Amino acid sequence: MIVAVVAPVLIGLLYAVVSSLIREPHRRRFNAVMVAGAGAAYLSGGGLGGWEFLFTAAVTYCAYRGLESWTFIGVGWLLHTAWDVVHHLKGNPIVPFAHDSSLGCAICDPVIALWCLRGGPSLTDLIRSRRGPLNPSPGGAT
């Protein structure tokens, strides 16, 4: 059970770290496209009928606004989290052959949403700044 929670959290963190390699403003735009794709992920299953189209339209709006706003991208991921929970409870997972895939997605997505709601900061720059400047000379002498 711990792996079922830890793995999605790590996937969300990995997503944020890898996305951090993209420089702004391209990082924000890339993430707007990604949340748009996530918003349409359940369409092929159609487990909730016409509601799937309404949900996709709502996330598409968030993605469009997300082209200029990290907040809308974060809201889009939170909407997707709620949709994941509904699909998990209904027994209509995002990956049809993986029963708990929507649950895993519902754990992963808020990690991404929190990063987006903080403005999608570069985590790679944060890691580099905490490590301090790299000293290329042997023995640490300058």
Rank of each mutant, 00 (worst) to 15 (best):
Y64I: 14
T71M: 10
W77N: 01
D109K: 05
A106M: 12
A106T: 13
G46F: 12
R65P: 02
V6D: 05
H99S: 14
G119E: 08
T56Y: 11
F55E: 04
I94Q: 11
A7C: 02
V9I: 15
F72M: 08
P133G: 10
G119T: 03
L13P: 03
W51L: 10
G50H: 07
L79S: 01
A141S: 12
L43M: 11
R29T: 07
V3G: 07
A113E: 01
R29V: 13
L134E: 11
T124L: 10
D84V: 01
L89A: 14
R130N: 03
L134F: 13
Y64E: 04
M1S: 09
Y64F: 14
C108E: 11
A63K: 05
D100F: 13
C116F: 06
P138R: 06
Y15F: 15
G37F: 13
I112A: 05
C108V: 00
M1E: 08
H87I: 07
V9P: 05
L43H: 08
R27L: 12
H26Q: 14
G74M: 12
P136M: 09
V85Y: 08
A58G: 08
L13K: 00
V85N: 03
E24H: 08
F53M: 09
G119Q: 01
L14I: 11
I11L: 12
V9L: 09
I107Y: 11
A4N: 13
W115T: 01
H99K: 15
A40V: 15
V5Y: 10
N135Q: 13
P93H: 06
V75C: 02
L21V: 05
I73T: 07
G50E: 02
E68T: 12
N135M: 11
W115L: 03
H87F: 10
G120W: 01
H26Y: 15
A32P: 02
A57M: 14
R131S: 04
S44M: 11
V9D: 04
D84T: 00
S137V: 00
P121F: 01
N92E: 15
A98Q: 14
Y15G: 01
G139C: 11
L79I: 12
A82G: 08
A57I: 15
R27Q: 14
I73M: 04
V5M: 05
P121W: 00
I2Q: 01
V33Q: 05
P8E: 09
H88V: 02
Y64V: 14
L117I: 07
P138V: 03
R65C: 09
V17T: 08
L117N: 08
A41M: 12
V75R: 06
A113L: 02
A58S: 13
I127L: 15
G132L: 08
C105T: 08
V6H: 00
R131N: 09
T56L: 12
P25T: 09
D84G: 07
T81G: 06
A32Y: 01
G139S: 10
V9K: 07
Y64T: 04
L134C: 04
C108L: 15
A63L: 08
S122R: 04
G66E: 12
I112P: 02
A113H: 04
L10Q: 03
N92T: 15
G74W: 13
L67V: 09
A57N: 13
D100H: 12
L114K: 04
F72E: 07
S69G: 04
G47Q: 09
I107D: 09
D100E: 12
S129T: 10
S129K: 13
G91N: 04
A41R: 01
R128L: 03
D100V: 10
G119N: 05
K90N: 14
P133T: 08
H80F: 12
T56W: 13
H99Q: 15
